[in-house]
Design a protein around this nucleic acid. Structure first.
Length: 427
RNA sequence: GGAGAGGUGGCAGAGCGGCUGAAUGCACCGGUCUUGAAAACCGGCAAGGGUUAAUAGCCCUUCGUGGGUUCAAAUCCCACCCUCUCCGCCA
């Protein structure tokens, strides 16, 4: 949610900045509705003030034993007007909400112009893609050849975009989760959090995944509770601070959580249908920070480095890009994507997305803190994958594959793998 | 699932339908005192919104949520949600 004051006072500026995010809204209509809102709100609050004053008079007159019939009919006279004004006001506000509710966050001024991922700007390349003196396989062939990855069975059990994994590959998957969590807790100062995988609508609205007026990419339960499966741990973890008033000393909050994530991927038919790149269910280790507004951009750099540390620890070549305006998500003001090198695709693919949401989520969530100067202010929220576990697993498979189809285990994972150095060894 | 109790400001906890936006305590902020601190004492301190140049004033809203009764609701009525205790069930 964009600051309503800013939106009112500087509508053109907001419209202009949202254009870099390829979001258009009808400025004239907004301003017309806004002036109606103002007039109606002033009118109805004025009538309420009058009613309150008269009611107090009645109380006093009655206390003195006077007659109140005359003044009562006076109140009744403008009760209808009040009701009408309030009704109209509610309608205008609903119309305004239809505009503002689908309005994405404004990009930070450092965000490059552009329409699509082709316009993202690379800021860093780490590591060198390995050279192979044999034909490389992708993770699907590697996994299936070792009888460790089974898409057909998953389709039977559930449907497309699921996987069944078996044996030592699953152990490496689990090792990755441990490695990521331990690193963020022990070296980066995050507190580990366990939170619900089913959430209510208010939480999804809070972090911006859900709007009354927009489509969403979520699995909903059929139960009367109205629960949704989380698309990312960002939702339950960030919503810890929803409807709360923190003290300044409590900031920053740094949380890390491992959860499964569930996404319908409704808008991506035909994309990444092969393999484990895009699944309905995947594991992710997520970093969340709740910070003082003055330091959120420093924290974004830090959080991104925390995610990068995992890729570096695993010796996976990657690059870091700043998303251009057109590629930015709904709630984000600035996002770094980390893209890991996948030999099987001969391309860098997204493995982490680290964003600063500024006060956009905080305003929706009513997540505030009392500053040392006694004022209440909205916090800034950030999050990033640290990392997507499934994609990390397949990146290791593809980058560390050997000619015989076995896979070398990265050094840092060996302690979690019984000290072994390879999986898929041919007996 | 059955029975009972309860949801009020950052926290705890009062609150006859009008004098209650809300006692009191804690926490917090300012001051007196002190070499400094603590204690004691004095004073201040809810949030959100509107209007506005204003973080000044004024006004509106809010006592779990939504509806209702009334000139007037934290207080009365209805529905729902949540929490706690006991019993049952259960990883």
């Amino acid at each position: 949610m964009i600051d309503p004051q800013l939106l009112r006072n500087d509508t053109e500026l907001v419209a202009q900045r949202l254009r870099t995010k390829r979001h258009e809204f009808d400025v004239e209509r907004f301003q017309a509705l806004e002036s109606q809102r103002k007039q109606l709100q002033v009118e109805s609050e004025d009538l309420q003030a009058k009613r309150n004053a008269k009611s107090k008079e009645i109380g006093k007159i009655k206390a003195q034993g006077g007659d109140v019939d005359a003044i009562k009919s006076e109140v009744a006279a403008f009760a209808d007007r009040l009701k009408a004004a309030q009704g109209e006001l509610a309608q205008v506000q609903e119309s305004l909400l239809a505009i503002t509710d689908v309005m994405p966050n404004m990009p930070h001024e450092s965000v490059p112009q552009g329409n699509s991922e082709d316009d993202n700007i690379e800021v860093l390349r780490w590591g060198t893609p390995g050279q192979f003196d044999f034909p490389v396989k992708d993770h699907v062939d590697l996994g299936q050849d070792a009888n460790a990855m089974d898409f057909e069975t998953a389709t039977k059990i559930a449907g497309p975009r699921f996987v069944v994994m078996r044996g030592e590959l699953v152990r490496m998957h689990r090792a990755l989760i441990q490695y990521m969590l331990n690193t963020h807790v022990e070296e980066h100062g995050y507190e580990e959090v366990y939170a619900p995988y089913l959430v209510n609508q208010a939480s999804l609205i809070g972090t911006g995944q859900f709007s009354k007026f927009a489509d969403h990419d979520l699995f909903a339960t059929q139960s009367e509770d109205g629960y949704y499966l989380i698309p990312t741990a960002e939702v339950p973890v960030t919503n810890i601070v929803r409807d709360s008033l923190l003290s300044e000393q409590e900031l920053p909050k740094k949380w890390v959580a491992h959860t499964p994530c569930f996404r319908r991927e409704a808008g991506s038919y035909g994309r990444d249908t092969r393999g484990m790149i895009r699944q309905h269910q995947f594991e992710k280790v997520e970093l969340v920070q709740i910070v003082h507004p003055s330091e959120s951009y420093d924290r974004l750099e830090e959080l991104t480095l925390n995610a990068e540390a995992i890729l570096q620890g695993l010796e996976l070549p990657y690059r870091k890009v700043v998303l251009c305006g057109g590629d930015l998500g709904f709630s984000a003001a600035k996002t770094y994507d980390l893209e890991v090198w996948l030999p099987g695709q001969d391309a860098y693919r997204e493995i982490s997305s680290c964003s600063n949401f500024e006060a956009f989520q905080a305003r929706r969530m009513k997540a505030r803190f009392r500053s040392n100067s006694k004022k209440t202010e909205l916090v800034h929220t950030l999050n990033g994958s640290g990392l997507a576990v499934g994609r990390t697993l397949l990146a290791i498979m593809e980058n560390f594959q050997q000619a015989d189809g076995s896979i070398t285990i990265p050094e840092v994972l060996r302690g979690y793998m019984g000290g072994r150095s390879q999986i898929f060894e041919t007996k």
